[in-house]
Each structure stands twice: as C-alpha cells, then as structure tokens.
C-alpha cells in the first residue's frame, strides 16, 4: 500500500506537471481544493457522507490520465484487459456511421485512425462504476461479498468473495472485472482509502480539465450538489432502474 501511494505521488506530480500545459489546470486545482476541504481528515464517520460523482463530457479531452492514475493507485495490472475506469471515444462519420472505441481503456490515448475530414462529430465519455443506489451487482451476489457502504460506495470484500462472477454478469455497465490474482471480482472503489481520509479519488485528482468531479451529496455546498442544482444532467441506462450516482453533463444519445 505504502509503495503504491509513493508511486502514485510520483505519478501525480508528473500528471500535474503535464497538465500545466492545459489552461484548465487552474480550474482543476481550485476544484480539487474545495472538494477535499469538504471532507476533513481525521475520524471518519460514514453516516455523515453520501458520495456522488459528476462527469462533464464536454470537458474531457481523452488524454487517459485518469485511467493511468487509477491503475497505478489501485494496483490494477497494466498488462491485462481490466479497468476500473476508462474513457470512450464516440465519432460520427460523415456517412452517419457511429464508431465507438476505447483502445486499452484509453491508457495510451487515442490513435487518429479515421482521417479528421471524415469525422462529423466526436467526443469523449469517461466511464467508471456508477456506485448505483440500487445496484444489481449487490443484488445478485450469492454470499453478500459485494455490498454498499453507508456512505454510498459499492465495494467487494476480497476475503469473502467466492469468485462466481455473477456480479460481473449483473452489472449493466461493464464496470467489474475478475481479478485473477485475488481470484475474486474487482471494481472501482472511488478510492475509498483516499476519500475516507479527505482526499479525492485518483482519477478526479489526475484529470487536467476538471471533467471528473467528486463530492458529498449530503453537503449542500459540495461541488457535486452545485452541479446537480444548476446543470441538466443525465445518468447511464436510466431505464434499468439502477439509480447511478455518477451524473453526466452533456450525455449524447449515442452513449451506451
């Protein structure tokens, strides 16, 4: 764990430095500051929080830093096709065809494999576990190894999971994967080890444009609540009744 965190700090520095080129860095630093302040370190009481997440698809530039930061922070193997978060690219060609891709979950960015003049419209959509308020993954786990915490985070108990993979089938968003090393299901934790110490999830911290926001839904002044109050938001696969807690701004109808 220590090593990971040290590693992460290193990468974090790199990420921040790299991001300096992007003008939006200022906004991202400011945002990070406020969200972190909203959850002071110290005794953590999970009854006092209920976390939420916002993705502003209009801001995402598809750099894939979030996906990188996540793998580093959470020891997700780089050489396996498993991701706790990833970025999708949607391109509508002039002939109307929609091409969706996410090569290696966006970790190495996106190659320009269609000549720009053929593309009519393009945008990126970051994806992550929605920490659903009515999570089908929790519903289907036969032993209760997948559970929702009081502060609204869906986690896997690695000591308890029998590795049946029913939850992976049950998640409509492809947010879960099988951890071959642990022999259990695995997924995004919203960096529970960080948020309970007042830090932001690694992906939110790493995003140079502020496309990812994290905050406390129980705090009326949190960044997430402000956005929910002001913006027109949507969630993924609304009709499935999973009640996602990752809210999207600028969600296109093509997004699955």
């Amino acid at each position: 764990m220590e090593v990971t965190r040290r590693k992460f700090t290193k990468i974090g520095c790199k990420v921040i430095l790299g991001a300096a080129a992007v003008s939006a860095i200022i906004e991202s630093v400011v945002t990070n500051g406020t969200a972190a302040e909203n959850s002071p370190a110290g005794e953590y009481d999970w009854n006092e929080h209920f976390w939420g997440y916002v993705v502003d698809t209009r801001k995402c530039i598809g750099c894939g830093r979030c996906a990188n930061a996540c793998k580093l922070e959470n020891d997700v193997p780089f050489d396996e096709p498993v991701y706790r978060t990833w970025v999708e690219r949607y391109r509508t060609k002039r002939d109307g065809e929609v091409v969706i891709d996410s090569p290696n979950g966006s970790i190495n960015g996106f190659p320009e494999d269609i000549p720009p003049e053929e593309v009519k419209k393009a945008f990126y959509v970051p994806k992550i576990c929605n920490h659903c308020d009515n999570p089908p993954c929790v519903q289907v786990c036969p032993v209760g190894a997948t559970f929702a915490t009081k502060d609204g985070v869906v986690l896997v108990d690695y000591q308890y999971c029998i590795g049946c993979r029913y939850c992976i089938q049950g998640c409509p968003y492809g947010a879960r994967y099988f951890n071959t090393e642990k022999g259990t299901a695995d997924k995004c934790t919203w960096c529970y080890h960080r948020i309970t110490k007042g830090l932001l999830p690694a992906c939110v911290q790493a995003c140079p444009t502020g496309a990812r926001k994290f905050g406390d839904l129980k705090d009326p002044d949190s960044i997430v609540n402000k956005i929910l109050d002001e913006e027109r938001i949507n969630v993924l696969k609304l009709d499935l009744g999973t009640k996602p807690k990752v809210y999207y701004i600028g969600l296109d109808r093509e997004v699955r």
């Binding site: 519903q139 036969p142 032993v143 308890y160 999971c161 029998i162 590795g163 099988f178 022999g183 259990t184």
Partner: peptide, 19 residues
C-alpha cells in the same frame, strides 16, 4: 475463483441473489 469458500453459500446466503 475460491472453491474453498463455496460453502459460504450455505452459511451466509445473500437472499436477494437468485444464486
């Protein structure tokens, strides 16, 4: 993934699961 834990399905069944 963990056959040795399979028996937990008998001891601590999570009843909302069809399995």
């Amino acid at each position: 993934g963990h056959p040795e834990r399979g028996i937990e399905i008998m001891f601590t069944p999570h009843l909302t699961s069809a399995m």
